[in-house]
Design a protein around this nucleic acid. Structure first.
Lengths: 339, 339
DNA sequence: CTGAAAGCGCTAACAA
DNA sequence: TTGTTAGCGCTTTCAG
């Protein structure tokens, strides 16, 4: 049988109220009683029933995280950030991934209702706006990497995709590359679009040169980066540099280039986005835009906890985390800048 | 205020029992009543309180997953496997990562007690056995990649680390490499130990040659693979091949070799373990042991659900998932086997 | 300092 | 087919 608070109370010769006081450190209890209770609890291997506590406290101490179906280092870092922050604050993390369309997200949203005190939602699909009416009310929510104005008055937190991509493109230009190709993520993805926009802006400003055939659409996987690059190499004209919208695609590009016997960065430069841990260990080490994935997760939880403490604020907060350019040798900068 | 089952009942002019019957599809309800109830629920945006349901049903529809603090593709694939399987079965996933010692695991274990219907525990630390007495009773548990006999009568599920490492080592031997170095994970890690054991066994059987200085201890990160390989290159004698105990370390090794101007596989062969998605896109493509991470997660959930349905079996099940050798060009096999 | 008792929102007999 | 009611295990007034 399960051991409940009554068992402990009986065993310790006190009432359930006193046991409850001990376990929640609420209200005064004589040292004597406390000891007897703790001893009895230990002996019985008692653990409070969380469902009952949730029911009466109206707090589950759990935070829900809805993530898209994406693999890889970036997402695993976001998860780590969420987990660590939640744990430190004594909260649990209820995750639900693998959502690639609105219906799936809505199903998961429904299933989480009532189980969590707050919600972190990452839905980089540009259709995100359509979720707005179905967002649960009454609990704080923070949207990660979503179009900030699309989901109604909800808090958002994002990586500076535009700024990061623009900085990288400028860097490529600065190093001397004029003719630059871009490997984008799926165009239904908000991050992909923003990075493309940053690329375009910098290129226009800096007088670089691009080409429709040099805008290749991938899906953030190594395979798509590889395929796209092979397509690119079949073109008559070749760019001097390839900017991949994430590191996974950059890895695919590197593979295709290596296979074709094209030397990086001598014959062609390559740059990525995200700066996953292994970027530094690729051959050649990959120049990338550092995206603070771990921090993104941590801050999201921070926001939620904040909202849980403080009275709700009526104006949503939109915050963008800065990115940082990490120059390594894949873009040819090293050749120009001797140590 | 929150809307409860009573509000719906009142609105629809029925009793709470009838509303409950509609929502759980338990017991007969007239079509007329059902419609009125559904309509009222919709209008009120009613959603059953999960805490109350859990309390009375003694089922939370949640499964807890305790994972060690490891990043990278392998773990993110295990997570995906867990999530997908749980979701398909209508269960939630309560994850808690970042546990690198026993105390941390025990804390998390305590916190999950009463919140989950089953538990997946991955604690590859060799000390895993010490957890046994603190494992919660009353709910099914499955241990992932743990020493199978160490944790008492608990179900286990593991990757065939020994067999995989042995097969890879044999392959290296078959291809003609005699003098082989190994990069291990931390020696407190059960997976690392098993892989090392498989390596040793194959080497002994196959007449290969190794050396204490060629057994380098890393920690499964790219950085440790890189550092270890640099140390290796400073030795007077060099091996013909390096077997890294996971792909991340292999990537670090590749980087160190590249930096030192040593060509892979011509001058030195490299092999990894895990076969993460990008292994195929490294330069050169990495020969590795495919470890079914996604499947591992899926099966773990399957086991739990099984135990939840069926009457508990007294004899624990120990299952080992087979690995598969994936030969690419980093080990020099391609040179010997023309297409 | 301690205990009795009233629920939290829901489900499942049992009765009607 | 429907309603009444007794809890699930816990927290929290409110008296004592």
């Amino acid at each position: 049988m399960r051991v409940t608070i009554r068992d402990v109370a009986r065993e310790a010769g006190v009432s359930v109220a006193t046991v409850s006081r001990v376990f929640n450190d609420s209200g005064p209890v004589s040292e004597q009683a406390r000891l007897r209770i703790l001893e009895a609890a230990q002996r019985l291997r008692y653990a409070p029933n969380e469902a009952a506590r949730t029911l009466i406290n109206r707090r589950s101490q759990a935070i829900g995280a809805l993530l898209p179906d994406l693999h890889g280092e970036f997402f695993s870092e976001v998860m780590r950030g969420l987990d660590r922050a939640a744990q430190r604050a004594g909260h649990h993390l209820l995750v639900s991934g693998s959502h690639d369309d609105r219906a799936a997200v809505e199903g998961a949203l429904r299933a989480m209702r009532g189980r969590v005190d707050g919600l972190v939602l990452m839905f980089p699909d540009v259709e995100a706006a359509a979720l707005a009416p179905n967002l649960p009310t009454g609990i704080p929510i923070v949207l990660l990497n979503c179009p900030s104005d699309a989901c109604g008055p909800v808090d958002t937190l994002a990586i500076d995709n535009f700024g990061g991509a623009r900085a990288m493109t400028r860097h490529l230009l600065d190093v001397g590359h004029r003719r630059i190709a871009i490997l984008t993520g799926t165009l239904r993805n908000h991050d992909a679009l923003e990075r493309l926009r940053g690329f375009g802006a910098a290129l226009r400003d800096g007088g670089g040169e691009t080409h429709d055939r040099w805008r290749l659409v991938g899906d953030f996987t190594e395979a798509s980066g590889y395929d796209a690059t092979r397509r690119l190499l079949r073109e008559r004209e070749r760019p001097e540099a390839i900017f991949a919208s994430n590191d996974s695609m950059a890895i695919g590009a590197l593979a295709a280039l290596h296979e074709a016997g094209i030397e990086v960065p001598l014959e062609m430069a390559v740059a990525g986005f995200d700066d996953i841990p292994m970027a530094r260990y690729l051959s050649p080490p990959l120049t990338s835009v550092h995206a603070p994935a771990f921090e993104l997760g941590g801050r999201a939880i921070g926001r939620l906890l904040d909202a849980l403490e403080r009275p709700p604020r009526r104006t949503p907060r939109h915050e963008t985390l800065p990115t940082r350019l990490v120059v390594r040798s894949s873009c040819g900068a090293a050749a120009l800048q001797p140590p």
